[in-house]
Design a protein around this nucleic acid. Structure first.
Lengths: 153, 153
DNA sequence: TGTGAAATTTAATGGCG
DNA sequence: CGCCATTAAATTTCACA
């Protein structure tokens, strides 16, 4: 199922990506639409599942997590399933993607320091073979493409 | 600089990660704190830069972007800098991380289909050597560790 | 820092072009 | 689909503990 959005919907998404707490009234002012119409469109975006959720970007460095790494994992047999079932045991793993290619999984981990990393690797080794890359910096860009039709509820 | 949060702050962050549009009144109800105190804490989190921004998670599949891939890049000389300077020319690249290890950059790309991928690879090749992994699925988990001190403005 | 109350703004709903 | 008007709820501000 592919849903096409009109310009209003795209503008709303762009605004919400930058500040998801803006009032409907204020969003409406920016895009020249009434409160009620703006609210209805936001609710349509949520109801259609285009907006998965309203969230918050946290700066973990300020909380003492100064080390961000990508750990790629290789597994034998079905150890992959054991690992994903145990993911809750690894609070430092923030995302876990299953991918094609040399590695089975690529995880993003938020860590305090290198001894925290060492500890994590020790806990990963029973499941498979981890390969660690330290994330030096990140450029984050959010973009949505334009279509021209109105979103239906 | 490391900032420590108390239980109220942690609960607020957890709640906002799940629904960043909840009213201060409602958050306050959940954590048993008044509207005004809750609002002040959220504003402190923002002022301290712990909350980078309130955002929205978009389901791109519903917008016709059915293919998500990780593309790792190798570069010669300083082609790496040319590429990052030109990132705006690649609207399908959503994140771009500089990492240590075999590859210089790892990018996440949101694509419509395999011909879109082919087109992207053609545009990447002038900069460096891309290696593509298709993202089959993703498990996303947000967690914050507990400390016990009060956040200061 | 937290609470409670008053003034202002926003959200939610329903009727109408 | 969008606008306007009405009622309910939330935000903001401030005095006080």
């Amino acid at each position: 199922m592919k849903i096409t959005l009109d310009d209003f919907d795209h503008k709303i998404l762009q605004i919400l990506e930058q500040n998801a707490r803006l009032s409907y009234a204020e969003i409406g002012r920016i895009i020249s639409l009434s409160q009620s119409a703006t609210k209805e469109r936001v609710m349509n975006l949520v109801d259609n599942g285009i907006i998965r959720r309203f969230s918050v970007e946290v700066d973990y460095r300020k909380l003492g997590y100064d080390l961000k790494v990508l750990i790629s994992m290789k597994f034998k047999n079905d150890d992959f399933r054991k690992f994903t079932a145990d993911l809750e045991k690894f609070p430092e793993i923030v995302t876990c993607k299953r991918v094609t290619g040399e590695y089975c999984l690529i995880t993003e981990c938020i860590l305090q320091d290198s001894s925290h990393l060492e500890n994590l690797i020790d806990r990963l080794i029973p499941y498979g073979i981890p390969t660690t890359s330290i994330q030096l910096s990140e450029i984050s860009l959010q973009k949505i493409k334009s279509n021209t039709k109105r979103l239906k509820r």
